[in-house]
């Protein structure tokens, strides 16, 4: 196995570990805030701890997702070109989603 694959394998597990407590926090938060108004959501995510937890969750999820979907693509897409393009597309999508989420959290945090 290449060193990159080993690196990916380890980071997949590290993000998984981090995501165990973050997921529990997220599920509980979602049920608590289901049906909240925009102002209530903004007030919730403007609090430093909650804003940082959400940022950490989104980043860990997106990285975990990119690594996981990559493995699925590698297993089932036989064609070299298509496989490489699919992996790139997932990485680009994950990166774009991370930027959108962080920008949104920053806007909520600083915008009030």
């Amino acid at each position: 196995m290449s060193r990159l694959s080993v690196h990916h394998w380890r980071n997949q597990r590290l993000t998984a570990l981090v995501l165990i407590p973050l997921t529990l926090w997220f599920v509980i938060s979602m049920f608590v805030h289901m049906g909240d108004s925009r102002a209530q959501i903004a007030a919730w995510l403007s609090r430093p701890v909650e804003g940082l937890l959400m940022a950490a969750l989104v980043l860990a999820v997106l990285y975990h997702m990119a690594l996981g979907v990559r493995v699925v693509i590698e297993d089932y897409v036989a064609d070299d070109g298509r496989r490489a393009r699919a992996v790139t597309a997932v990485n680009v999508a994950g990166f774009a989603l991370a930027i959108i989420a962080l920008a949104a959290l920053a806007a909520i945090g600083f915008g009030g």
Binding site: R38, I41, A42, L45, M54, V58, V61, L62, M65, G68, V69, V72, L97, I100, A101, A103, A104, L105, A107, I108, G111
Partner: peptide
């Protein structure tokens, strides 16, 4: 895992909409 990836898109949509 793949289904949750699509769920993540909706989570980001929710955050962006709130902002």
């Amino acid at each position: 895992g793949v289904a949750l990836s699509f769920g993540t898109v909706f989570l980001v949509w929710f955050l962006a909409a709130a902002a």
